[in-house]
């Protein structure tokens, strides 16, 4: 019984973990290229969740079709914040960019609160479910998982097969060297920030396909925390590391939920969230540059 439950939960964990991984790639991309930690990361996930919700509720657009809208909106927001704030802080102390991205997160939360109130909302897509016997998988979750893998794959191809992607990789390796080679480093920064934010907003859409309820302006905070756990698991500066970190995190999260639920007197939901915080501290203590990195 418990093993059936556990294996069901672990499968769910892998699928959710894939989406988590995708939701962290933007964070790692931005840190990798700009060395900026986006403390407002979760707020962009929240924006994506609202994109999915509003498009579905007002225009009846299925969530997967909200992805391109989310990508464009996210990239536009990325450009906006890069040129108004981030660009001017790259040379300054780290504190400045941390506080700026934090404030950007607060701005997004407050704007969404004004637009949509702080009430938690949800939507019902009504797709069928896949019954595996030991666990039930809604198709919407499978689509979100597939979508995440597809996005990860596209990012990989873009980085390795296109000129623009290779130029960006060269900035990660050595921004001065890249500048000497005629690459417009400032534009690469803007583009990476914008793509990073675009990916994050897209991940917000995909996450609602997993959890279509509880959409509210302040939902991002817990995703910020999760994203940092995942990012340090996979190495903060590596988008692919983030993807695998997501898979591992999804497994650990669902596994620990099942175990906490066995212990009487504990709230498994809250304990799981506490556990992710403890994991963050432990990983940072053991190896701040990422557990899954081989180097």
């Amino acid at each position: 019984m418990i093993f059936e439950q556990l294996s069901g939960n672990l499968l769910q964990g892998v699928i959710l973990g894939g989406v988590y991984g995708m939701a962290t790639m933007g964070l790692s991309l931005i840190f990798g290229v700009l060395k900026v930690v986006n403390v407002g990361h979760g707020a962009f996930i929240m924006v994506g969740a609202y994109v999915a919700l509003i498009l579905f509720q007002t225009l009846g657009i299925a969530p997967p079709l909200a992805v391109p809208v989310a990508l464009i909106l996210g990239m536009a927001l990325g450009m906006l914040f890069y040129y108004t704030a981030i660009k001017k802080l790259l040379k300054g102390p780290e504190l400045a960019s941390l506080l700026a991205t934090f404030s950007i997160g607060v701005i997004l939360e407050e704007v969404c609160k004004q637009l949509f109130t702080s009430e938690a909302r949800g939507y019902h897509w009504g797709l069928d479910k896949l019954d595996l016997g030991f666990t039930v998988l809604p198709y919407s979750k499978l689509i979100a998982f597939g979508g995440s893998i597809l996005v990860g794959l596209l990012l990989y191809l873009w980085f390795h097969k296109t000129r623009a992607g290779m130029a960006m990789r060269s900035v990660v390796e050595d921004d001065e060297g890249a500048g000497v080679c005629g690459i417009n480093v400032d534009w690469e920064y803007a583009l990476s920030f914008s793509i990073g934010i675009g990916l994050t907003v897209v991940s917000g859409v995909l996450l609602t396909m997993f959890i279509p309820v509880g959409i509210n302006p302040y939902m991002g905070g817990s995703y910020t925390l999760k994203a940092f756990v995942i990012a340090v698991l996979g190495g903060l500066a590596s988008p692919y590391g983030a993807f695998f970190g997501g898979l591992v995190f999804g497994l650990i999260e669902n596994g620990s939920y099942t175990l906490f639920a066995q212990i009487p007197g504990l709230e498994p939901f809250a304990m799981t969230r506490f556990f992710s915080f403890v994991m963050l501290l432990v990983i940072l203590l053991i190896r701040p540059t990422g557990l899954l990195r081989t180097k």
């Binding site: 940092f228 990012a231 007197g265 504990l266 809250a270 304990m271 506490f274 915080f277 501290l281």
Partner: peptide, 17 residues
């Protein structure tokens, strides 16, 4: 990054345990 979850982590510890 290490400090960002302290308040939430502790809140869920109080609630969870």
């Amino acid at each position: 990054i290490a400090t960002i979850g302290v308040n939430e982590g502790f809140r869920y510890f109080v609630e969870g345990a």
